[in-house]
Write a protein that binds this DNA or RNA. Structure first.
Length: 587
RNA sequence: GCAGCGGUAGUUCAGCGGUUAGAAUACUGGCCUGUCACGCCGGGGGUCGCGGGUUCAAACCCCGUCCGCUGCGCCA
């Protein structure tokens, strides 16, 4: 026998007078002493139940005991509500179900918070995540997530991609993020690592001749969290053989287009493209938000002739430094002295020594820096930046990476403050031609993308940072949605890259020997991409936090408040895996 | 690791050195046959995150600590 015949909102399409069986939660109840109203909720929505003692005395006596969030199962009859009794605020507001038989299936204690109340602290909502998920908006979000996963599988299947699962217990590799480690019971003192991505395995699948692979893969990185970063997350991982960068981009675009269509958005392909270097010079970011303009303008040459030694010396070393101007249309009136100070403090957090500015007024260009420039230079500056009355021009000067970074951040900050961002827009962009290597603050050379990326050339160059790679990122509205590259498929090139990354022969052999060896047995040229699945859903669902699109997310301290994981384990279990825990030592 | 904000009734908040710590809502007892956040009358409910200090007196000031959020570092 069925426990229910319909979901709540199905009843819109049911003949009045039909006998139905319904099941769900009591969303709210209104007991008038005589008649009782219950709003019954299931995953589809709400339907009003009426319990009338004249119809069913027994149901009425059970019904008077009912409280919110009880789980009930009822038999009843669908009927139209009388005139003036229609509730336009619910989908089923013109009908109701008169109850003939009522069963309380499961009782509920008073809830710690009201279902759907978004003002409740996240801490309490995460502890009772199963209650938070009862909200219909959460259901909608996860329905979207499910749909996107399904269209992803269908599209990639239709393009000849094979879904393959790669190991979760795998090998720790030296580069990249911190690994989550899993002790081996069988091998004393040895550990598995959880994969940061299936990168190496998917390349080995190409060597295995699978030609086209995909996976909706869980990835793990033991790094500190952000609003859009969780320690375990999901990516759509794709790899293909005998392909060019164009082939990979076509697949990625087709996939993104299909996904957005499923979410109700028609988007145009192909996406715009921009070289990494242009992105940095114009927007100070490798993931520029193109929903608003505000490009940076190079003004080093003008300051080279200024009478301020600081600016002048910065300007003269064009290889190392930049002086960038950022125009804010109408910014002179929009930004008070106090706000200018706030913006200066803002950029100084990111290493700026200060923030210069010019103001365009009725009677000419003003500002603290005008005294260092002659009329001719000021005139050129106004022309080059197309400065109009009422505009403000910010000037950032210093080491180029630093200037790119803080002026890029300033651009975003100003766009937020002036409401320049159209939240309904989707601006896609391919950022291409990434550098192969990058030096960190200590001067150590690392791979910008990852060490399996094909360099455009390994010929001798002045600076290792000048070597470009066949790598590309998909950027949407200033967020890195995903990225990929053409990979190295030759053992000699792969070895050379590891050497340039200062790995010793022994390290290469121990950590990546199996990969390099695989390339000695006939490896096809290959490449691919990965898209951050959670971030993608977050954007489509217009959520501010990745936690809203993950069923059981972790807090910023990487804990699960629902299960209290991670947790201590019994000493016997530790002994079994040959681990002893040290006392906590401060510093 | 660092910075900012927050932690007071089940929940959301007010109180910011001086009676017995309040409000709304939730909960609960009673009444109520057309409500839809039902209504009306009554009732109960607090480790003011935790520990220490200053003070005649601390939810309030100081120090430490824990937790949550946002960001920085970190995240090939």
């Amino acid at each position: 026998m069925l426990l229910r015949t319909h979901f709540a909102t199905d009843l819109k399409n049911v003949q009045t007078g039909s006998k139905v069986k319904l099941a769900g939660w009591v969303n709210s109840h209104r007991d008038h002493g005589g008649i009782i109203f219950i709003d019954l909720r299931d995953k589809t929505g709400i339907i009003q139940l009426v319990i009338d003692p004249e119809r069913s005395k027994e149901s009425h006596s059970i019904g008077s005991d009912i409280r919110d969030e009880f789980v009930i199962i009822i038999d009843g009859e669908v009927r139209n509500r009388g005139t003036g009794l229609i509730n336009p605020r619910i989908e089923t507001g013109s009908i109701e179900v008169i109850v003939d038989n009522l069963k309380i299936e499961s009782r509920s204690k008073p809830l710690p918070f009201t279902i759907g109340d978004k003002n409740v602290n996240e801490e309490i909502r995460l502890k009772y995540r199963y209650l938070d998920l009862r909200d219909s908006e959460a259901y909608k979000t996860f329905k979207l997530r499910s749909r996107v996963a399904i269209v992803t599988r269908n599209l990639l299947d239709s393009l000849g991609f094979l879904e393959v699962e790669t190991p979760v217990l795998t090998k720790s590799t030296p580069e990249g993020a911190r690994d989550y480690l899993v002790p081996s019971r069988v091998h004393h003192g040895e550990f598995f690592a959880l994969p940061q991505s299936p990168q190496i395995f998917k390349q080995l699948l190409m060597v295995g001749g699978f030609d086209r692979y995909f996976q909706i893969a869980k990835c793990f990185r033991d790094e500190d969290l952000r609003a859009d970063r969780q320690p375990e997350f999901t990516q759509i991982d794709v790899e293909m053989s005998f392909c060019t960068q164009e082939d990979v981009m076509n697949v990625a675009e087709a996939l993104v287009k299909t996904i957005f269509k499923e979410a109700g958005h028609e988007i145009r392909t192909p996406f715009r493209r921009m070289k990494y270097n242009d992105a940095m010079e114009l927007y100070g970011s490798d993931k520029p938000d193109l929903r608003y303009d505000m490009k940076m303008v190079e003004v080093s040459d003008l300051f080279a002739d200024s009478t301020n030694d600081g600016f002048k010396n910065t300007a003269l070393n064009r290889k190392k430094n930049r002086i960038k101007a950022l125009k804010v249309i109408g910014g002179d009136s929009a930004f008070s002295r106090k706000i200018l100070k706030e913006l200066e403090d803002f950029v100084m957090k990111f290493g700026a020594k200060g923030l210069g500015y010019f103001q365009m007024r009725e009677d000419g260009i003003k500002g603290p820096l005008t005294k260092f420039m002659n009329e001719e230079l000021l005139k050129t500056l106004v022309e080059r930046t197309d400065l109009k009355n009422g505009d403000l021009l910010f000037i950032g000067a210093g080491e180029k990476k630093r200037v790119w970074d803080y002026m890029g951040r300033l651009r975003i900050e100003i766009a937020k403050r002036l409401n320049l961002i159209d939240s309904n827009k989707f601006e896609f962009l391919w950022v291409v031609d990434f550098p192969m290597f990058e030096r960190d603050n200590d001067g150590n050379v690392g791979a910008l993308h990852h060490p399996f990326t094909m360099p455009k050339s390994l010929d001798e160059v002045d600076d290792i940072e000048d070597i470009e790679s066949v790598a590309y990122d998909i950027v949407l509205n200033g967020i890195e949605l995903g990225g990929g590259s053409i990979r190295i498929h030759r053992d000699d090139i792969q070895k050379r890259i590891f050497q340039l990354l200062n790995l010793t022969e022994t390290e290469i052999d121990e950590k990546f020997g199996f990969l390099v060896e695989a390339f000695t047995y006939g490896a096809p040229p290959h490449g691919g991409f990965a898209i951050g699945f959670d971030r993608l859903i977050m954007l489509l669902a217009k959520k501010d936090s990745i936690r809203d699109v993950i069923a059981f997310p972790k807090t910023q301290k990487a804990q699960c408040l629902l299960t209290s994981a991670p947790d201590k384990v019994a000493i016997e279990k530790l002994r079994e895996v040959n681990i002893r825990v040290n006392e906590k030592v401060k510093n």
